[in-house]
């Protein structure tokens, strides 16, 4: 009988015991949001376009950074560097080319004309990959171990590789001209 006569006390107790979960979630959310915002503000992911990476090569030194560029189709070569099987190619952005040696499996959509985002660092010297003719050939190459593809929002199925290269605003005609030589 006491329970029905004094409904508020036991109910308040039950509520308290049930509410630790949303309170915990709310606190967890605040912490997670702060961590994520901090992560973004400190630039956890920032791509240097090929032209910027070349311009800032001395500042970058042998630091690890992320490089974005568009692979030149005719340059893509599967070969070996020492004992290691690698994929070598040249990327271009803003009319500037960078030779790349990538260790590991290339991305599924990796092809000439579709921009890639690579993690790695500058190495001074020739790539020395069998069968690869470096198009930049400036005494440096970018050694990469992670590849992602930055595809665009063009889902029209008539875009031939050469047309896309010619239409590209960012890379000029460099790649098309080089491959045509």
């Amino acid at each position: 009988m006491t329970d029905t006569l004094a409904p508020q006390e036991p109910r308040a107790g039950r509520r308290r015991s049930r509410r630790w979960l949303p309170a915990l979630i709310a606190v967890g959310v605040v912490v997670a949001v702060v961590v994520l915002v901090w992560n973004l503000l400190t630039g956890a992911l920032f791509f240097y376009n090929a032209d910027e990476a070349v311009a800032e090569r001395s500042e970058l030194g042998d630091d690890r950074f992320t490089l974005q560029g568009t692979p030149v189709g005719c340059s893509i070569t599967s070969g070996s560097q020492g004992d290691e099987v690698v994929t070598a190619f040249t990327v271009t952005f803003g009319g500037v080319m960078v030779d790349v040696v990538h260790r590991g499996e290339p991305a599924e959509l990796f092809e000439g004309g579709t921009p890639v985002v690579l993690d790695g660092s500058w190495v001074e010297g020739q790539p020395g990959v069998t069968g690869f003719e470096p198009l930049a050939d400036d005494g440096w190459y970018y050694s990469s171990d992670r590849m992602r593809v930055k595809h665009d929002n063009d889902y029209i199925n008539d875009d031939e590789y050469d047309d896309r290269l010619a239409e590209s605003e960012t890379q000029g005609d460099t790649a098309a001209e080089v491959c045509a030589r």
Binding site: L36, V37, N39, L45, E108, F110, M147, R148, V149, H151
Partner: peptide, 19 residues
Amino acid sequence: PTWNTYWDWGDVRLVTTLI
């Protein structure tokens, strides 16, 4: 299959959507 990664913790679109 398209980017070659499920997630990137530094990607501004992905992380702002998560926030």
